[in-house]
Design a protein around this nucleic acid. Sequence first.
DNA 1: CCGAATCCTTACCGATACTG
DNA 2: CAGTATCGGTAAGGATTCGG
Lengths: 151, 151
Amino acid sequence: MTISFGSGRSRLVQMKQRIDECREQPDDDENCPVRGIMDRIGSKWSVMLIMVLAERPHRYGEIRRAVPDISQRMLTQTLRELQQDGLISRHVHPTTPPTVEYRLTQLGLTLLDPLSGLLNWAETHSEAIVAARLAYGAADGRVDPGLQSAV
Amino acid sequence: MTISFGSGRSRLVQMKQRIDECREQPDDDENCPVRGIMDRIGSKWSVMLIMVLAERPHRYGEIRRAVPDISQRMLTQTLRELQQDGLISRHVHPTTPPTVEYRLTQLGLTLLDPLSGLLNWAETHSEAIVAARLAYGAADGRVDPGLQSAV
DNA sequence: CCGAATCCTTACCGATACTG
DNA sequence: CAGTATCGGTAAGGATTCGG
């Protein structure tokens, strides 16, 4: 995007201030939605389902086939959560047998850009991260979390 | 801005293809790092610690004071994970008492931009999401997940 | 075809106490 | 100051079974 490179830092600092303010009011939930949203993003299957629906609207069984290693329990539950957040919508066609179609909402579409930005970062730097994980705990098998200064 | 609006969608679809390929090989771990990275991002404290260190390098106790509601167990554990991924570095100054400073690495700095993009999205649309959560389960208290067609 | 409901096994994570 | 070690409650999530 057109925003300069160093902008991420200052925006993050401002963000932290706002989240800190949330902690002041012990209302527990509802007052700091950013935290809840990030938890949702980080949940095991949300991003995967969003990616599937980003391609095109899908029926329930289609999603199930597109993501074979999800249990129907978690598929339904995650769909409900995303629906509850207004990111996807559920459309029932009164046919026999019933046909249910899920698709991204307008709100869900706006998420695609920042989300793909993060995923692109993950893919771009995945090799560096795997390398870092291997380098950690180096030496002769000794696990010595002592001093190290790799910038 | 040079990037068109719908770019997020196509990039996400491509991303899904690559993650699907990862599932083909049952090596379980190491072969699909994107999944692991996203889990890390979504973990409870990682983003918060990154935000703190985005401001400036911090000592252990400083982070602890900056994030009061984290246990020292999770603080140390999350710091180790981020260090292992090469996102932060740990510097021990051999003083008495010991002084340990954490800071973002070059790799960690590159994460700030896409991460702040996502956080900005979360903050921007937080009201819409809260509204959607309230709207879900509307009517007279009846929870009827039947048919609905809000976009 | 599209779910809901139940059971049950893990892992996360907080609290607490102890070390160098 | 900057951690490590251990215990235990809780909740996420998989397998399975039943319903409309």
